[in-house]
């Protein structure tokens, strides 16, 4: 029973952190940025009318409100029915499906940001293009111990899976787990490569700002690789001890901690806004 209550509390936390706290903070950062850097002084920051931007942010807000409502409804149904599982289904499936649902507003905001930068590039009439004549290298942005931690966590996960191949438990998927974590690492590695050597999406961004942004994104990608492989190893260990429910709780807590960390590293106050002036 206690683990049911713990799951409800953690699920409530997941709803609050990912669909209320984080979006509210993001909107706060964007609104503060717009207030401190008005269109008449920083026209290049606004390839769109302020009203259009506000309307898009409102849609983001509505999407999140909808997600919160669905999440609270799932929680209410579970509590009213005194169900062992969330909404009477498999906890893990509900948590995963709901997480995907929670990502939709983020994807919407990401797509809008992509379009915004595309418009900035189209409006950029500057015929001079500047670049650094130094190569960017991975270790300019992250430390070797941090990357070693990612390699270690991958190794730990692989060793854990290999152990359970020898001593399997009910529901163990086998070597597919290694394939899954390897695909994840390959994807994150590709993301790092694109961030290091890929196209510059904001045509006005200074080298310093780009360097700060690259550092943040690469750190987050490596951190998510570390978290994912450790989570997989921990969930296998818990599943082998017949403690799958605790794995779901840890999974949700992991995500919430990650979102908190993302917000901590997302800062707009260091950005050089002078490039957006007339």
């Amino acid at each position: 029973m206690w683990d049911n209550h713990l799951l409800y509390i953690v699920f409530l936390g997941q709803i609050f952190v990912i669909s209320f706290y984080f979006p509210k903070k993001i909107l706060g950062l964007i609104n503060t940025s717009m207030q401190q850097h008005p269109r008449d002084v920083y026209p290049k920051l606004y390839p769109l009318d302020e009203e259009v931007i506000k309307a898009k942010l409102k849609i983001f807000n509505v999407y999140n409100s909808l997600v919160v409502s669905v999440g609270l409804a799932i929680l209410a149904v579970s509590i009213i029915n005194n169900s062992d599982d969330l909404a009477g289904w498999d906890d893990q499936a509900v948590l995963l499906c709901f997480l995907m649902f929670q990502y939709f507003p983020m994807l919407y905001l990401g797509a809008q940001g992509f379009d915004y930068l595309k418009l900035m590039r189209e409006h950029n009439k500057n015929e001079h293009r500047i670049a650094d004549l130094q190569p960017r290298k991975l270790f300019d942005f992250i430390s070797k111990p941090f990357l070693s931690a990612a390699a270690f966590s991958y190794g730990f996960c692989v060793v854990t899976v290999l152990y359970f191949v020898q001593y399997p438990f009910d529901g163990f998927a086998g070597l597919v787990n290694i394939l899954g974590v390897s695909i994840l690492y390959a994807g994150l590695g590709f993301g790092i490569y694109i961030k290091l050597y890929g196209k510059k999406y904001n045509p006005l961004q200074t080298s310093e700002d780009r360097s700060i942004e690259t550092t943040i994104v690469i750190k987050l990608l490596i951190l998510s690789a570390i978290c994912s492989s450790f989570y997989l190893a921990i969930s296998l260990i818990l599943a082998s001890m017949d403690m799958r429910d605790l794995g779901n709780i840890i999974y949700s807590l992991y995500l919430q901690a990650f979102i908190f960390y993302v917000y901590q590293v997302m800062k707009f106050d260091q950005v050089d806004y002078s490039v957006y002036k007339t």
């Binding site: 500047i130 670049a131 050597y197 510059k200």
Partner: peptide, 15 residues
């Protein structure tokens, strides 16, 4: 001194 890769320089200059 090292120079940036072709890909890096081309992408940075958008050419």
């Amino acid at each position: 001194d090292a120079l940036p890769s072709i890909r890096q320089l081309a992408n940075d200059l958008d050419i």
